[in-house]
Simulated assay, not measured.
Amino acid sequence: MRILVVGAGAVGGYFGGRLLEKGEDVTFLVRAARAEKLARDGLTIHSPAAGDFHHDAPATVTTAHVKPEYDLVLLSCKAYDLEQAIEDIAPAIGPQTTILPLLNGMKHLQHLDERFGAERVLGGQCVIAATVDAEGIVRHLNASHGLTYGERDGSESARIAAITRAMEGAKFDQRASRQILQDMWDKWVFLATLAGMTCLMRASVGDIARAPGGRETMLAFLETCRGVAHAAGHAPHEAAMARTLAMLTDESSSLTASMLRDLEGGKAVEADHVVGDMLSRVANGVDATVVRAAYAHLKAYEARRTS
């Protein structure tokens, strides 16, 4: 299987690197500067949990030279880069190419379907805490490194079986799911609440849970998101909701969203894709005061950042 990984940053660099470590045919679609750095320094993953990996010269290609010769495109960009990423991968999409997006939320599926056709686009998600440091090293920050994928209609297929064969044995947790859309909604309900609240409060889950009224505000945000998922036919299952509740109300937790870290670092944030799209789906008459406040806070930050 020929795999094109879009980008060699925290997510693409980690999962693509682990597939490369396993021996899969992996090429990274990167900008010229990143291609030059990878050619000079190689790709390095540092992971206390899963072990380090270095490849002296990973295969790279730039948008000017990419060809439609790949079986799988692993799309791991940020939502605010999706429009450009779609243009970048278009020349790589051949008759048998499958796209596996790992973006948060759901809105990206519509954009990918419109450009490439729904039959080419799988459902997918990943769970990982990683970053790229100033030297370009991919640093895995904890023990979580999971990737889930599946046909959006819940069926089994030859291409899912082929992807599973490619990923089995790589040093990350991989799972083919027969309910990938539900998995994506479960993550979105959790992530929208986590990102919205930690950004709005500029605080960790534990700090919010211990603050007067903090737990109640967190639960109000979560209930709005759960209601959106329910209206879409993807209400979180009892076990998923129990896990989410436990994580978002833990008074000892130092958990924050990566969006808060981006915001505090003056970087771009996925306000529209993670929080704004959730807010746009709230039914008329439903109290979404906290979600609306979080979204307004993020958009005000964006306005100030770009002014």
Results as ranks from 00 to 15, higher is better:
3 I>G: 11
3 I>M: 14
4 L>A: 08
5 V>G: 11
7 G>D: 04
9 G>A: 09
11 V>N: 06
15 F>Q: 01
15 F>C: 05
16 G>C: 08
17 G>S: 05
17 G>P: 01
22 K>A: 15
25 D>I: 07
28 F>C: 07
31 R>M: 02
42 G>A: 13
51 G>E: 09
55 H>S: 02
58 P>K: 01
61 V>C: 08
63 T>E: 14
66 V>E: 01
69 E>M: 10
75 L>F: 07
79 A>G: 14
85 A>L: 04
87 E>S: 15
92 A>Q: 12
95 P>H: 10
98 T>Q: 07
100 L>N: 04
103 L>N: 02
108 H>I: 00
108 H>P: 08
112 L>P: 11
113 D>S: 12
115 R>Q: 12
116 F>S: 07
117 G>F: 12
119 E>H: 14
120 R>V: 06
121 V>L: 10
123 G>A: 13
127 V>K: 04
128 I>G: 11
129 A>H: 09
132 V>H: 04
132 V>Y: 06
133 D>F: 08
141 L>H: 00
142 N>L: 11
143 A>T: 05
145 H>V: 02
147 L>M: 15
148 T>M: 13
150 G>D: 04
153 D>N: 14
153 D>A: 08
159 R>D: 01
172 F>Y: 07
172 F>W: 05
175 R>W: 07
175 R>E: 09
176 A>C: 14
177 S>G: 11
178 R>I: 05
181 L>F: 09
182 Q>D: 11
184 M>A: 06
191 L>K: 00
191 L>F: 14
191 L>D: 03
195 A>L: 03
195 A>N: 05
198 T>K: 08
205 V>E: 08
213 G>M: 05
216 E>N: 07
217 T>D: 04
217 T>H: 09
223 E>A: 06
223 E>R: 14
224 T>R: 07
224 T>Q: 03
225 C>A: 15
225 C>F: 01
226 R>T: 10
226 R>A: 15
236 P>W: 10
239 A>Y: 03
241 M>W: 11
245 L>I: 05
247 M>I: 08
248 L>Y: 08
248 L>A: 12
249 T>H: 11
252 S>T: 13
253 S>T: 03
254 S>V: 02
254 S>D: 14
257 A>K: 07
258 S>Y: 06
261 R>I: 06
262 D>S: 07
263 L>S: 03
263 L>N: 03
266 G>I: 06
273 H>K: 01
275 V>F: 04
279 L>G: 09
279 L>D: 05
279 L>I: 03
280 S>M: 09
281 R>T: 00
281 R>S: 14
282 V>N: 12
283 A>W: 04
285 G>Q: 05
286 V>M: 11
291 V>E: 02
298 L>V: 00
299 K>C: 07
300 A>R: 10
307 S>C: 11
